[in-house]
Structures are given as C-alpha cells and as structure tokens.
Computed example of a mutant assay.
Amino acid sequence: MIHHISISAKNPRHVANVLAELFQGSVMPFPPLEGAYVVMAKDKHGTMIEVYPLGSEIMPGQGLEEASFCRNAHPYHFTSVHAAISVPVSQAALETIAQREGWRVLPCARDGLFNLVEFWVENRVMLELLPPVMAKGYLQAMSPANLEALAQQLAGVAGRS
C-alpha cells in the first residue's frame, strides 16, 4: 500500500489546496523543503501527497546521511510519475473542480478492467482518481484472484508471439 507520494507544482500551495478539496482533507507546510506543502486525506490509511516546488529533486545522502533536497534549474514539464488514488468525492465533483482550475480531466476505462478519472494537476502531472464507485471496480479488478487470471492470460498471449 502506498501511504504518500510527492509531486512537483508551479504553485505548490494552490495545488495542495485543490488536492485537499478532492480528498476532503487538510494542508500544512512541509518543513523539510521551503515552499512545499503536505496534503493529508485524513483517511484510515494515512494517505498524503507532498507538493514540492517545481524543480525540487531528492538526492541520496552520503554514508549514514539521509536524503536531501536540491533544485534543478531546468526541470521537465511532464513526468512519468503518477498514482491511482481513491477519493471520497464524486466524478461530477472531480470534473467541476478540474474545469474551475482549467485542468484537463477525462473519464477513462483502463483496458476494460476498471474505470478512473485522469486528473491533470496544472496540466502537467496525471493523477488517476477513483471516486467511490470506481474504487470498488478497481479493487475488484485488482484482487489477487483476478490478477492471477490476468497474468496467466498475458503469459498465453506472450507465448503466442
């Protein structure tokens, strides 16, 4: 289970506030990095998203030193990092919030297995959001029994090529 992730944003405080709205959670500053915020979903899993200023990077420490932050003066606009996250709000609420922010939002069916909403934070970072109805479908599709059957099916297809 993933309990928290980090993303970068051009406007971290604003993005954190929008995400808190989606999670019906709260925002607080993230002291290890100036200008960063943490969004707390206040759910039973301790779900959080850390929102860093664009260009922030995490570097490994030396020896016994912990990781530290640095800034990249030339960050990429897009990223391969994304996450599927259950949210307590409806698809309609997601769409309304995205439209208000001018951010891309798109309901999707992933390979016929489950549905989700692509929610593009600042039109840069994709979060696959799962309102309650979609979260049930995702959890069913990703159950151990269904994953085993899918793995066998994919192995059969790979063996034929």
Rank of each mutant, 00 (worst) to 15 (best):
I7G: 02
S143T: 08
Y76C: 07
N123C: 06
E122K: 05
S90G: 06
I85E: 03
Q24F: 07
S143R: 06
A109H: 10
G25H: 05
R160T: 12
L19A: 05
S68C: 11
S6K: 05
I58W: 05
T47H: 02
K136P: 03
H74G: 09
Q140M: 08
H77A: 13
S161W: 07
A36Y: 02
A151H: 14
F69Q: 01
P31M: 01
R13W: 00
E101N: 02
L64M: 12
L139I: 05
A67R: 10
S80D: 14
M134E: 07
F23I: 01
L94P: 04
N11P: 03
A83L: 10
P88V: 11
L54F: 04
L22N: 01
S90T: 13
P88W: 08
Q91A: 09
V133P: 00
V38I: 15
P32C: 10
F69C: 05
I58K: 12
G156V: 05
F78Q: 12
L150F: 13
A92K: 14
S143H: 08
E101L: 04
F30L: 12
V125F: 06
S161V: 08
D111L: 13
A41C: 07
K42I: 06
R110G: 03
V105C: 15
R124L: 15
E128V: 07
G112P: 01
W120A: 03
Q99G: 12
S143F: 08
V51Y: 00
A98S: 05
G112D: 06
G55F: 05
V125G: 02
S6G: 15
M59D: 10
N11F: 02
E95W: 01
E122Q: 12
C108M: 15
V27M: 02
H4P: 03
K10P: 01
M48E: 15
P132C: 04
V18T: 04
A93D: 13
P29F: 05
H14V: 06
S90R: 04
G55Q: 03
H74I: 11
V51D: 01
F119H: 00
G112M: 02
V87I: 14
H3T: 08
S80P: 11
